[in-house]
Design a binder for these strands. Structure first.
Lengths: 205, 205
DNA sequence: GACACTATATTTAGTTA
DNA sequence: GTAACTAAATATAGTGT
């Protein structure tokens, strides 16, 4: 009298612990990742927001999702001013200040990761285009840009640097009362650190 | 004989359309945003991943969530190589290539947005620290960095520029067969575009 | 306008093909 | 590996406070 059920159905799992079984963890990752993307996508269409999700598996494989197209976000946010001039009414300022250094770490992190992000997005797009023809992964030479793209890219990077310099100047102003450290702007002579160029291949989580 | 129910319960809504009623949209945004954060957080703990979610409301207000702390992600991803050397076996390459330009847009977008991101995170952290004392928003002077932070920031930015230049060199290599466009690396003379500095205040979506 | 409720819609753990 | 299935768990639309 207990086994006319075909499955146990969804079982409760402890979401406050890591899934220790490797296979379960992999499956859970895959299922919940798509769930997350779907939720994100719905949030965007329902509320007219724009969003980016970046996920890094324990092995370092990057996954991501964005809607609808980040150019719009870039334009909008470049026009908003990141500064706030309020006085802090209590000691909470220190906690915030402590995070300021993370801010830059995140900039770097995200900056480098977006390459991977686009790679995945391109993959998905290509797969969709091919009407789900079950091609496992498209590992194109994403870096082989067209002439036009290369020029546009250069323009973007120059603007990026302008923004960085602005930010540094901004900091100098803020630091003005602090005589011992002039921050200085980037003068463009830092270009030597090199990276090993093995092919980066996606691997399973 | 139909009204012993207290509420209608959850109703189906069309998730492929924008919610046109302003109030409903606001509420949906709030509810689903926390749902999304929760899902993301669970994904992290269950699968040991790291993640960042960035959302921008139609009015430009940024929201975000990250787990556990992005510095770790930064370190890891800086060591992974963004290039892939495979040959494309079919026409899907164009779709990917077309996305290459978005790649940079996203870098810029995320780069500038992280300032806002940290602001929100700092806010949350401060609120938590204060044991939910219902202080509405902490709008600290996030840009007023300590000396130490400013120095560290400068180091980060220099490294960032090194990476940008590397990327440009990389592109030159890739473009080598394309004689008409040398991309060139950043030479550090772009620093003039200025921004209006009104206080940026959070506003409702 | 944040929080609690309740009924239903949606997600997903475990399983099977 | 993955795609589908089932039943239970979870998220949330509409409502009230």
């Amino acid at each position: 009298m207990d086994s006319n059920k075909q499955t146990k159905g969804r079982q409760r799992i402890d979401t406050s612990k890591r899934r220790e079984n490797e296979e379960d963890r992999l499956i859970t990752f895959s299922k919940r990742r798509s769930g997350l993307y779907k939720k994100g996508s719905e949030l965007c269409t329902l509320c007219g927001t724009q969003l980016a999700i970046l996920i890094f598996s324990p092995s370092g494989k990057p996954f991501s999702f964005a809607h609808p197209n980040i150019e719009v976000i870039a334009t909008r946010v470049l026009e908003t001013n990141p500064r706030s001039a309020d006085e802090d009414s209590n000691g909470a300022i220190d906690a915030c200040r402590r995070n300021s250094i993370n801010e830059l770490n995140e900039q770097l992190s995200l900056l480098s990761n977006e390459v991977e992000y686009e790679k995945e997005r391109g993959t998905k797009l290509a797969q969709t285009t091919k009407a789900r023809q079950n091609k496992p992964l498209c590992e194109q030479k994403m870096d082989e840009l067209s002439d036009y793209d290369a020029q546009k890219l250069k323009a973007w990077l120059l603007e990026l640097q302008a923004r960085i310099n602005n930010r540094l100047e901004e900091l100098n102003v803020t630091q003005a009362t602090h005589p011992s450290s002039a921050v200085g702007t980037i003068d463009g002579n830092a270009s030597s650190s090199s990276y090993g160029y093995g092919g980066h291949t996606f691997q399973k989580i």
